[in-house]
Nucleic acid binder design. Structure first.
Lengths: 221, 221
DNA sequence: AAGTAAGTGGAACGACCTTCCCGCTTTACT
DNA sequence: AGTAAAGCGGGAAGGTCGTTCCACTTACTT
């Protein structure tokens, strides 16, 4: 699960590295990719210098934190391709990926943007990309995915879902289900039957979500 | 168009007020609601103290800047209601509002969140809300809007579109058409015919959009 | 035309973030 | 056990942001 990820590092340094990664994972997940490096260091219980030394740029940190999530992303593609019913695999993929975005606001942002500098991330994105093309091709062949669907639409889906997640993750965290349900109905050909549409979030929960979105979020300790 | 909006203000002060509003309008539209107050003051050619005095909080400024856009929002609801075909009115409303979001990134964010302190904005939002309930009711009555569609779905649409607009407005500004097309297909009942689906943005444009989204944006002068 | 109060912008302030340097602690090797 | 170096955290320097104060300027009044 966690084999020596950074060789040639002293034991305590490696321990600090892990603490930083854990802290960053936590903060990115709840507050997005824009948390200050100082916050991460504080949360990790290390000095800011230590953080800077280990991860000179924010992108380095993002790269390290989300490497395993990107593995899960690639795995979701593989799993979808393994499904005997490509359309079912497609639905499942969309659902799983959006669930990942909902569970981790930082990852939602990672999926919706690209970091040319983060080689590990981009390599996996490319890997997933080719699998997705194949998945789309097969799903279209079943006649249940619209013929004019393109791989760009998946990116659009991720961006849209990132928007919903960013706005609702605290006060109405299930809202994304509803978006995905609507979009899948848009992606499917007319006769196709689909999983039931999730319930809409309550009006008050959604209102609270709209409130939260305004506040820059409060950093407690 | 611009009747004495703030009475009891000296002529030069009023002039500065307008300059601030114009500057804020420009910056909010292109960079979103998070531009620094100092930038607004610089763009307006006034001191930061003047800005602070006229609009003590960012919300005050947002409130003043987007009052007229909110009028347009309310007008879009009225126009939709006036359409003899409620389903057509509904489609048109969705399209128009999303176009407003695409044209003004700040407004996209305003629509996706709420400012209890901004009375003028919230009053108009409430006004639009009641019209929308009626529009939805009528559209459902035509049998072309799904029966399980709710007014919350419109909020979700706005949040999703805000996400797409935020990510793509510079490099692939037409992407939102595609999202709206998919969602409308999701909102409609099976047999309903819809306007053609917009073309997907080119892969390279979308890739460039994903790049831009990462950069904090550069403030030129 | 002169007085007055409203209005102005710059400077100063405090909070926060980032980067870098430096003296001290801890680890790992023998 | 002893030592060399790897690693550490705090703090200084430099940046941004929003707010407040203050001496100066400007527009209205009669």
């Amino acid at each position: 699960m966690a084999p020596p990820p950074e060789p040639g590092l002293r034991a305590d340094a490696e321990r600090n590295r892990e603490r930083i990664l854990a802290a960053a994972r936590r903060l990115f997940a709840s507050d997005g990719l824009d948390v200050s490096m100082a916050c991460v260091a504080r949360e990790a219980g290390v000095g800011k210098a230590t953080l800077s030394r280990r991860f000179p740029s924010r992108e380095d940190l993002i790269n390290a934190v989300f490497a395993d999530r990107m593995d899960a992303y690639v795995a979701a593609v593989a799993q979808a391709l393994a499904d005997p019913d490509p359309w079912h695999g497609f639905i499942r993929f969309v659902h799983d990926v959006c669930a990942m975005q909902a569970a981790d606001r930082g990852f939602a942002e990672v999926l919706a943007m690209t970091f040319p500098a983060a080689k590990a991330l981009e390599a996996r994105r490319a890997e997933a990309y080719h699998g997705l093309l194949e998945l789309i091709r097969r799903a279209k062949a079943t006649g249940r995915l619209r013929d004019d669907f393109t791989h760009q639409d998946l990116v659009i889906l991720l961006m849209a879902n990132a928007g919903v997640v960013a706005a609702t993750h605290t006060a109405a965290p299930d809202t994304w289900h509803r978006l995905v349900g609507h979009l899948l109905r848009g992606f499917a050909t007319p006769g196709t039957d689909l999983p039931a549409l999730a319930d809409a979030p309550s009006t008050t929960a959604l209102y609270r979500a709209m409130l939260r979105a305004a506040k820059p979020a409060d950093g407690r300790e």
